[in-house]
């Protein structure tokens, strides 16, 4: 796990959302996907901050579509997950699963309040 290549929580969520959305992954749909599945409502700029960081790390790529009159002539930037991004997600998942190994549900464990 090299420094600067591991995924933060927001990056993790964003990368999964982009992967789930496939060809329809752009700012608003990514934001809605995360809100729907996690209840976390992010601003559009916050979504872009993480996506730009993921692009710098080489985990996603992006392209601008043609502008549409529906959005006042503003184009959509679509994002796609790269192989490297999927590999990092899988590694991250394995790391998490190893950490969870042997731990029961929180309700089964005696914990200090």
């Amino acid at each position: 796990m090299g420094k600067g290549t591991h995924l933060g929580e927001a990056e993790h969520l964003m990368l999964l959302a982009v992967w789930r959305l496939g060809k329809n992954a752009h700012g608003v749909t990514i934001r809605d996907e995360i809100a729907e599945r996690t209840g976390r409502r992010l601003s559009v700029s916050a979504v872009y901050v993480t996506l730009v960081r993921l692009e710098k790390k080489g985990y996603v790529s992006s392209f601008l579509a043609d502008p549409t009159p529906v959005r006042g002539g503003k184009a959509k930037r679509f994002f796609t997950v790269k192989k490297r991004g999927v590999a990092e997600l899988e590694q991250s998942r394995r790391r998490m699963e190893r950490m969870w190994e042997g731990l029961g549900a929180a309700s089964d464990t005696e914990l200090a309040s």
Binding site: G27, V44, Y48, P67, K74, K76, R77
Partner: peptide
């Protein structure tokens, strides 16, 4: 305040989010 590299698409997204 937005960077010019992403200004148009974010303004478009902000408009779409606002409309929703």
């Amino acid at each position: 305040v937005l960077p010019h590299e992403y200004r148009d698409e974010i303004l478009g997204d902000a408009r779409e989010a606002y409309d929703n």
